[in-house]
């Protein structure tokens, strides 16, 4: 069995974002980057499937982006993936979901993977499209937002998350693609021995230019900070002062202390 996991590197969402000079994306300097949270669940599910099958499947983890993308790839290898593929693209943030998925499809077509896992969306762009477009381009059945996964005899049964806490149970034959929702599993922390082992694993470097490129379908014309509605009161200072002011406000505005 061959498993593919597609991951993305994103900024820490607690960062303070600034608009770049071109005005069409965030300024990428001075940001701490990490693996997209949803993708950690995708990596973990791939590793769990490999473990279930006695270590037989080979897991490839792929990511598109500049130099720094090596870091999350290394982390995925330390979590248990076997080999990494870095599609080098210094300008990947300018590509729309269609272009990213087309690039992944051009790569994945060669590999004839049995199972593909992606996060359900990225934390920065959040289009929730790349995994699904990839599946359509490869002609694979796909299911989004899985919160449960089990494999038996070439059949996969997944649970999809629905609104209000309900789920639907869906059965899919392989090969297939799944997009992973938070809470699907408990992503492991790489142990020190595994981090050391991961350093010896291969990360294949390929260039985006090695693949046929496609035209974008949706351009970001502008990135901006949403207008603050500014109706809220902001309390700063030390906690003694803040807590006193909050209690005073609650006395006036709510019935808590009556």
């Amino acid at each position: 069995m061959k498993i593919l996991v597609c991951i993305k590197q994103v900024p820490d969402m607690e960062s303070r974002f600034k608009v770049n000079a071109a005005g069409d994306w965030y300024d990428q300097s001075d940001l701490a980057f990490r693996m997209n949270e949803y993708d950690e669940y995708a990596v973990e599910q791939a590793v769990q499937l490999k473990e279930q099958l006695g270590g037989e499947p080979e897991i490839t983890v792929v990511s598109i982006g500049p130099e720094r993308v090596g870091e999350p790839l290394r982390k995925a290898l330390a979590m248990g993936c076997d080999r990494g593929v870095h599609i080098h693209d210094a300008d990947s943030s300018r590509k729309d979901p269609w272009q990213i998925a087309s690039l992944l499809a051009a790569f994945a077509r060669e590999g004839s993977y049995d199972v593909i896992f992606t996060g359900m969306q990225s934390q920065d762009r959040g289009s929730a499209q790349v995994g699904m477009i990839l599946a359509e381009l490869l002609g694979l059945p796909s299911v989004t937002t899985i919160v449960g996964f089990s494999y038996e005899d070439g059949q996969v049964t997944v649970r999809r998350e629905l609104e209000g806490g309900a789920r639907s149970v869906v059965r899919v034959p392989l090969p297939a693609l799944f997009t992973c929702q938070l809470g699907l599993n408990q992503p492991r922390y790489p142990t020190l021995p595994n981090i050391m082992k991961a350093k010896k694993k291969e990360i294949l470097l390929v260039k985006e230019g090695d693949f046929a490129l496609t035209e974008g379908r949706a351009l970001t014309s502008r990135l901006f900070r949403p207008e603050k509605k500014g109706r809220g009161l902001v309390l700063e200072g030390d906690v003694a002062e803040q807590s006193q002011r909050l209690v005073e406000i609650l006395k006036i505005k709510t019935a808590v202390f009556r």
Binding site: Y26, G126, L219, R222, P226
Partner: peptide, 28 residues
């Protein structure tokens, strides 16, 4: 083209949130 999670429409462009709701994009 698909534009996901539209919050506003503006002159033929679509506004969507990004970066966990901290920023917005106008998409054409």
């Amino acid at each position: 083209a698909q534009v996901s999670e539209v919050v506003a429409i503006n002159d033929g462009e679509y506004e969507v949130g990004c970066c966990n709701g901290k920023m917005r994009r106008s998409v054409k």
